[in-house]
Design a protein around this nucleic acid. Structure first.
Lengths: 207, 207
DNA sequence: CCTCCAAGTCATCAAGCGTTGACATCCTAT
DNA sequence: ATAGGATGTCAACGCTTGATGACTTGGAGG
């Protein structure tokens, strides 16, 4: 973005490689992507991948580790968290979310390492924050079910390509989504709308 | 199971190859599995894969095409459909459901053909049946959201490995699941419970 | 202007891949 | 018993892959 004629720039090359890897891994998965593919997308030689990232696995690790900023999700009222997560999963104006990393990890989930990172990202990131909103009998299970709904929405939109969901905007989905979340988090959907939550001082989820 | 000394049996070899392929593709995805792997699991030579299935892609197609019998899901009362789908997604006694095919397709979803089949299987199979239960304003969207919840539950259990959901039985999930489904299908969760809520007389998913 | 280290490229390796055709082996029908 | 086709095995092919080390090129400092 700065200037094209810049050649021999370590930082820029590193970044270009990383971005190309994110796109490729997200859309095709670990095994279907070759180091040469990524290098060609970035416009450099494949050997640089090994110079900068050590191995193909290192490149994958680097391309999937920067998770979509949980701090961004934790700030704001806790009650609005599900809604914010919904917007993160179904971007309204085509905004670049961390959805690519989720896809890359899912499409590569045959490998134990990818699965482990997916697990970490899910449990420590979203589900822990959601559990704060859930009621007692089976709080974790409730939170994980909300997480499942979000995961399912994201997947159905991006990989299954289900027609109505893929075409819908976040605003259209939200009422239904909210109703489901209320039912899942509250014991029998008794409406836990209150203005003062029980001060959950979570600072969230470190990277 | 019949008898080990049976050698040179076309049907048995074909079946062994297919079963091995289903397992491998489900747990590792298309690209991570080699034809030699599958053949070794089945205890035969890799060349037989090409004799019987034409190509690796043909083997994959054969291993993922037999979808888990939608007829099996359609039989019984329509209102109990979501519950039956839940049981299919979270098998109670470790019964072999068609979950493996779903996993295989998802882990191979970098390939357009796998994606297309996933799309077909989802839309024509489950979502269409679910849409019959949904109310008017946005019937398809409602049905697809229920599908998303099911997909998310399955994935969170089998690949993400979220603790509470992975440990829970279908009976523990069902009340929460039912509440969410009711909220999603009905207009504002107006309670479409008509008959006895908890009398699931089904115990066995089909074969 | 020249030097020199970082940044980038090239040629190459060994291993594994999907795929094929020739070959060996067993079952069956006559 | 024997011929013949079905069933299974083997060795090899061309190609791509991840990875490595020697080489070239560029730009900044003296």
């Amino acid at each position: 973005m700065t200037d094209p004629p810049r050649r021999r720039d370590r930082a820029a090359t590193h970044a270009a490689l990383l971005e190309a890897a994110q796109r490729r891994f997200a859309s095709e998965g670990y095994d279907a992507v070759s180091v040469r593919d990524v290098a060609a997308d970035a416009g450099v030689d494949a050997a640089l991948v090994f110079r900068y990232f050590g191995s193909k696995a290192g490149l994958f690790r680097a391309a999937t580790s920067p998770l979509p900023a949980p701090a961004d999700l934790a700030d704001g009222s806790a009650e609005a968290l599900p809604g914010r997560l919904l917007r993160a999963v179904v971007p309204d104006a085509g905004q670049p979310v961390g959805e690519e990393q989720l896809l890359a990890l899912l499409r590569s989930s045959g490998h134990a390492e990818a699965r482990a990172q997916l697990h970490r990202q899910m449990c420590d990131g979203y589900v822990a924050a959601l559990a704060e909103l859930a009621e007692e009998p089976g709080r974790d299970l409730r939170a994980e079910l909300v997480g499942a709904l979000l995961l399912g929405i994201s997947l159905q939109r991006s990989v299954v390509g289900t027609p109505a969901l893929a075409a819908a905007s976040a605003a259209e989905i939200e009422p239904l989504f909210d109703a489901a979340v209320t039912a899942l988090l509250g014991s029998t959907g008794h409406g836990k709308r209150a203005d003062s939550p029980d001060s959950p001082e979570n600072q969230g989820a470190g990277q």
